[in-house]
Simulated scan of single mutants.
Amino acid sequence: MKKLFFTLMIGLALILTSQAQDTRSKHWQRAGIEKSPKSIVNPANINRDITCDTLRFPMTGNITYYFLGDQDTGYVTGNNSYGDKAKAEFFEAVDEGYAITGFVAEFAIAKSLTNSNANITFGIWDNTGSGGKPGNMVTSATYPLIWIIEEVQKQWLTILNLQEPYTPTGSFYVGIILPQTPGDTVALWCKESSDSYVGTAWDMWSDSTWHSFNEPSSWNLNTSMLIHPIVCKTLGFNKPVDPEISVLPNPSNGMISIQNRKNTPRFKVEIYAYNGSQVLSKEFTNGNNRVDLDLSWLPKGIYVIKISDHIYQHSQKIILN
């Protein structure tokens, strides 16, 4: 009898869960405000050895977000009373020779009722799930929620780099793990839904299954969320390292020593982040072919150092950890 009772209770719970999920498409409402897409200001100096692009940025069309009404609360593209665990965007395979180095995210909502020190996890999933759905999370990076809250207030973009570039082998998904602490909430801007648009947005439900936004049993929305992978093509890193030039240690905790060619009266050192922005440019004219640099003020990650004089130019990857 007890076994029958528990079987009936489990069945009832599954039915109620299914019915609750079926109401998704009936309870969302479009926000009454729109966002004008922003553009990233290109740095004045771009490393010519690195070519980068930010996929689907800026997003075209009307930009908005959807919130839930009636007995449901929260946001379609973020935390909600359905208990969604993650939101992700589908992307086709990147061109050969390109790697994902970071993310640009545009949040419409970010708040915390507890002033928690929570971090938001940004991730990349492969397509090994059933039918090409999101499968394994292959790499990730975290970003403080309190920073996102400030960026939303100031209408800034959220930009972060991966510790190591990731090269997808096929189509992939980029998204966020939603905060689970009660009162911590984030939601992304998205493209206004249209029947003529092929949506690319996905979410992970409370039962850890992935669903496309445009499924009739889901939100029935044809939209894309404003989270964009930064992809970069690096050139020349496979060339033999010039034996007369060394950058040590590598990886480094921030202090590096550069040994340049002998009899070099002056040379220039430039350092670039993997998104192509120049973070340091310095000339040395004292005739000393060895210099020490303190880079501990830079965030951990991968950089490109370029050492050049009037004849030679040397580029290589360095890692700060």
Rank of each mutant, 00 (worst) to 15 (best):
I148S: 01
L162A: 01
I302Q: 09
T200D: 03
G69N: 12
N127T: 13
Q259G: 13
C52V: 04
P134F: 04
R266C: 11
E89S: 15
Y143P: 00
T223I: 11
I159E: 07
I46E: 15
N288C: 09
P299D: 07
K282C: 05
W125Q: 09
L235E: 09
D126L: 00
T51G: 14
N47Y: 12
V152T: 03
K306G: 01
L113Q: 11
N214I: 10
Q21P: 05
T158F: 09
E270V: 09
E89D: 12
L157W: 07
T185H: 08
W125C: 08
S171Q: 14
S217H: 07
L221H: 06
S140P: 10
T54C: 14
G175V: 01
T101H: 02
I256T: 00
M137G: 07
K262L: 15
T158V: 13
S25A: 07
E270M: 13
T64V: 12
S217D: 07
P251C: 06
K317T: 04
G69L: 05
C52P: 07
P251M: 04
S296Y: 11
I177Y: 11
T17L: 11
F57Q: 12
Y272Q: 00
K239M: 05
T181H: 10
A110R: 00
K35P: 06
N238F: 03
D53F: 12
T101W: 05
W202K: 03
V231F: 06
N47Q: 14
N288Q: 07
Y75E: 02
L113R: 14
A110S: 06
D22V: 00
E283G: 07
L295S: 02
D49F: 09
K317A: 08
N47L: 11
G301T: 01
V241E: 12
L12A: 03
I148K: 00
L295C: 00
D242I: 02
N253G: 07
S196W: 10
T121N: 08
D49K: 10
L14Y: 09
Q278W: 05
V104W: 10
N238C: 00
M9Q: 00
W202C: 06
I33Q: 11
N45T: 15
G254H: 11
L4T: 14
F172A: 04
D84V: 13
K154A: 15
V231W: 02
K233M: 10
C52M: 01
L293E: 01
P249M: 06
Q313E: 13
T114P: 10
L188M: 12
A118Y: 02
F67Y: 14
I230V: 08
N275Y: 13
T167V: 07
T17E: 08
T51Q: 14
W297M: 13
T285P: 05
D49M: 15
Q19K: 09
Q21N: 07
N80S: 08
Y98E: 13
I318R: 04
